[in-house]
Write a protein that binds this DNA or RNA. Structure first.
Length: 895
RNA sequence: GGGCGCGUAGCUCAGCUGGUCUAGAGCGCUACCCUUACAAGGUAGAUGUCACAGGUUCGAUCCCUGUCGCGCCCACCA
């Protein structure tokens, strides 16, 4: 007989079991299998990343889905991989370089990229290792990286197609610019955070009236939060209906400090109620001003360098940092008496999502994707339910973004990433700086798309080519992930079989970044949705509600938790506290839930394996020999199978977890296992014990894969791996309701007797004598058949049991549903104590009875409520009345 | 400015289409127990005007409206 070690030691089993699974190639997804396919998309974690607790949650959920589906007989593919995280990775390597006193420019592009690749080889698999430690059953043979050759081909293919369909353009727009990373960012990459800023009021003189005496005639006051951008002002705008400024029509203003002449323009988009109603117009540094400038044909003056310093336009301010310049300009304006006042002003300011530097809205020439055409289908598929969000409120968030979608800035001024596959013919373009070329659509002269130098220009025959220096947004490769990883644009068997996938599991933060764009890309390039279910789980926060992040230092490292309590406990704990879509507030103690449960399962299994000996074999129990408890536990198991399966199918993971917890702990261990110790038919009991254990372990396997596999390996007659065992199927019949009812009576009676024992401080080893009044003959049979159990579990002697049993003198009484029980205590009864107990109980029951009485005497209730509800209420009433009667009887007898 | 979520036991939270709710769980608390699977355990127990105010309904923790408190997301009010 095999035996489990006495002590549950997750460290001892987890890594070795994972190695066994790997050796047996159980994670592999076979595209030639005849099983129905089932695939999920793993969000490619950032290659610079390490596993944080949010990943642990995310990947546990996916692993649960995948493991259940695998056990249900699907050919499951869980495709793992990482994305190259352009900006983040480049930052990491640049930081490394700066410690050596170098910049990337010192190395040059080629050497720098070599260095990044080296870094990737050294560190890029950290998170993969960690996911394995967590137990993820991904098909690691298919691990992909967004810069792999195949995925890069997909990126190029998509770029070409978008270009040829006129969905790409390159032009001057205000984009979010990170002066630290020195690159453009998409709107999604600029995170808005509320900051306490100032709103500065500044006088702009009217040309020729430099005395500055009368506001509105000699000067105009404008309000701005970014005074440094005034260096790029070209106009001041007012609302045409604003009476204050009617007189300024046709006038010219002077920019303080630079003395540039500014036009006065009128535009309906200016809000007269904000500030002074006069808006300084800086088309190169503000999106609103850019629009205004475009409508009124204004010049665009860029005043900053790429690292956020004032450029030569700024005269004396040249070379100053943008915020230093802000201070200096204010001081200068105060000196020149052009400064009016400043007010506190709270406003949202964009920050770089990678380095948290304040983003500068800046005029820049960038590549964009026209998104509106791509969004049309993507809106439809969610509207008509082909793609469902869980919980569905996220569908609204998605649609709201999709319906207001803006063009996607995809070029980045960094080196690590997919280089934009565009070659410029220097001859056709008259040696213009390639950064300055504007491209509206396909067929632009002198432009060749491709990864290789085209060699010869198709239009002029020239041979001098220069590739676009920029790279693509990382998400431009991530949005292709569901099909690029399956070989697209090649037609592959895997691509046919495993696309579309079924489920996507992710956090709310990347709905726009990734989920929405994958849907668009899937529809556009594969002509089909990439997945049908999007499950959005909550954000993991610390106990105070703050997002867990390294910079806040509130991170719980999952690997440390694994070291302490094991991966199974971590997984179970985090799932059980995560109700659907709700944010998770995490603290260290939460992991006790899983640790204790794992321990319980371990010990119960150990006990079962120890006691069954050779009795169980692999044979099922003989149905004719099943007793009340056997039938009850089998029926409860059946219910549990049904509920766990349906909860998991509905993405209610915590519900499934607690269903299992309750069944295994409070039904199987607390009752069935205890009763099994007293069984007289050891063979049947053993068979039931093993059967229920095996089925429970299977249900638990997706949550606690290691533990269940370890135990499975010790069970006689449990073949193969639990990981590939067949998922339990619930029976069609409702099960033995008689046994369930009977068992409920047993439990109620035993509990009630124990209650009496505890209340009267009856010594542990002393047996009490009990008389039991059971009105129902059905229940009486059930109880009589299980007298042995009742006696032993409650530590009592049943003196009498039947429908006519009366309360003897000198006894205390108790109730178990409609069963009355009497315990003669002789002189040991403290009358006053018992009286107060009974009186309190009467009060309680009468309160409930009152409520039901009121209901039942309400004619409208009787008329309107469905029949079964009324019947139930009546039943309840009868029960309570009996209870009250009994209790009153008891009270009377005590006096 | 728009959208969303949350206020339920001392703490952390479940409670899915209103009646199976006499509102649950885990932790904590009280009493008893080292009963030969488990003290990371067992047995028994205490604790709730389900944020507040209205409304709909025969009936509301659940649906609607408003108020207060907390949190999140989106947004070009300079």
């Amino acid at each position: 007989m095999k035996e489990l070690p006495t002590k549950y030691d997750p460290q001892a089993i987890e890594e070795s079991i994972y190695a066994e699974w790997t050796a047996e190639r159980l994670f592999r997804a076979d595209e030639n299998s005849l099983k129905p396919p089932y695939s999920v998309v793993i969000p490619p974690p950032n290659v610079t990343g390490i596993l944080h607790i949010g990943h642990a949650l995310n990947n546990t959920i996916q692993d649960i889905i995948v493991r259940m589906k695998r056990m249900q007989g699907y050919e499951t593919l869980w495709m793992p991989g990482t994305d190259h995280a352009g900006i983040a990775t480049q930052n990491v390597v640049e930081r490394q370089l700066s410690r050596e006193g170098k910049t990337r420019h010192d190395l040059g592009r080629e050497k720098f990229l070599k260095r990044v690749w080296k870094w990737k080889e050294d560190h890029g698999s950290t998170i993969i290792r960690q996911l394995k430690r967590l137990g993820c059953s991904c098909d690691w043979d298919r691990t992909r990286f967004t810069m792999d050759e195949g995925l890069s081909r997909a990126v190029k293919e998509v770029f070409v197609r978008l270009y040829e369909e006129g969905l790409l353009y390159k032009g001057d727009y205000i984009i979010n610019w990170c002066p630290r990373c020195e690159t453009a960012l998409s709107d999604e990459e600029s995170e808005h955070r509320d900051l306490e800023g100032k709103l500065y009021y500044i006088k702009y003189p009217v040309k020729g009236r430099e005395r500055l005496e009368k506001e509105g005639e000699d000067y105009v006051v404008v309000a701005t939060t970014r005074p440094e951008t005034m260096l790029g002002d070209v106009a001041v705008a007012m609302n045409p209906d604003d009476p204050r400024y009617k007189g300024l029509k046709g006038k010219t203003l002077l920019l303080p400090i630079l003395k540039r002449e500014l036009k006065v323009i009128f535009d309906g988009n200016v809000d007269p109620s904000f500030g002074t109603g006069a808006l300084k117009v800086t088309p190169a540094h503000d999106p609103v001003d850019f629009e205004l400038g475009a409508r009124h044909g204004l010049e665009r003056i860029n005043v900053m360098t790429s690292d956020g310093k004032i450029n030569s336009v700024g005269g004396d301010y040249e070379g100053m940092d943008r915020f230093e310049c802000r201070e200096t300009i204010i001081e200068d304006l105060i000196q020149r008496k052009l400064f009016v006042k400043s007010e506190d002003h709270r406003h949202a300011v964009g920050h770089c999502y990678r380095c948290h530097t304040i983003v500068e809205p800046r005029l820049s020439k960038q590549w964009f994707v026209r998104m509106k055409p791509l969004s049309v289908e993507a809106i439809k598929v969610v509207r008509d339910g082909r793609i469902k969000f869980y919980p569905d409120r996220w569908g609204k968030v998605y649609l709201n973004w999709m319906e207001n979608i803006r063009d996607w800035c995809i070029s980045r001024q960094i080196w690590w990433g997919h280089r934009i596959p565009v070659w410029y013919c220097k001859d056709c373009l008259d040696d213009h700086d390639v950064r300055d070329i504007t491209i509206d659509g396909p067929g632009h002269k002198g432009i060749v798309i491709g990864n290789e130098n085209p060699g010869k220009c198709p239009s002029c025959g020239g041979t001098r080519f220069e590739q676009d220096p920029d790279v693509l947004d990382t998400w431009f490769s991530s949005w292709l992930w569901p099909f690029s990883t399956l070989g697209w644009p090649e037609k592959t068997r895997a691509g046919e079989v495993f696309y579309p996938t079924k489920a996507l599991v992710t956090a709310q933060e990347i709905i726009f970044f990734w989920v929405a764009r994958m849907i668009m890309a899937g529809l556009k390039f594969r002509g089909a949705i990439p997945f049908s279910d999007v499950y959005i789980h909550g954000t993991v926060r610390d106990a105070t509600g703050a997002k867990m992040s390294k910079s806040l230092g509130n991170v719980i490292d999952p690997l440390e938790v694994i070291k302490e309590v094991g991966s199974d406990a971590l997984r179970y704990s985090i799932i059980s506290i995560t109700s659907q879509g709700q944010d998770v507030f995490l603290s260290r103690e939460k992991f006790d839930i899983g640790r204790n449960f794992a321990n319980k399962v371990w010990n119960a299994s150990r006990y079962v394996l120890m006691t069954i000996g050779e009795l169980a074999g692999s044979a099922p129990p003989d149905a004719s020999r099943l007793g009340t408890a056997d039938k009850w536990i089998l029926s409860s198991l059946d219910t549990t199978v049904r509920n766990v399966t349906s909860s998991l199918d509905a993405y209610r993971f915590s519900e499934a977890a607690s269903e299992l917890y309750d069944f295994i702990w409070h039904k199987y261990c607390d009752w069935y296992l205890e009763m099994s110790k007293l069984s007289e038919d050891k063979e049947t009991t053993s068979r039931v014990l093993v059967l229920v254990l095996k089925e429970s372990l299977k249900l638990l396997h997706p949550f606690m894969p290691f533990l269940t596999e370890a135990i499975w390996g010790m069970i006689p007659g449990a073949d193969g791996r639990i990981m590939t065992a067949a998922w339990p199927v619930a029976s069609d019949e409702p099960g033995s309701s008689d046994a369930v009812r009977g068992m409920e009576k047993i439990i109620a009676l035993v509990t009630s007797i124990r209650n009496v024992r505890a209340f009267w401080n009856i010594e542990h080893k002393a047996k009490v004598r009990v008389l039991v009044n059971v009105p129902s003959s059905r229940d009486l049979d059930a109880l009589k058949n299980n007298l042995l159990y009742i006696r032993r579990l409650a530590g009592c002697e049943i003196v009498e049991m039947g429908p006519e049993v009366e309360r003897p003198a000198q006894s205390v009484a108790s109730l178990a549903g409609d069963i009355r029980l009497f315990v003669p205590l002789g002189g040991a009864i403290d009358i006053e104590k018992e009286k107060s107990r009974v009186a309190r109980k009467i009060g309680e029951v009468e309160k409930y009875l009152g409520g039901i009485d009121k209901k039942l005497s309400n004619a409208s209730f009787l008329d309107n409520a469905p029949g079964d509800v009324v019947a139930k209420e009546k039943e309840k009433k009868a029960r309570f009345e009996r209870e009250v009667a009994t209790l009153k009887d008891n009270l009377a007898a005590l006096s």
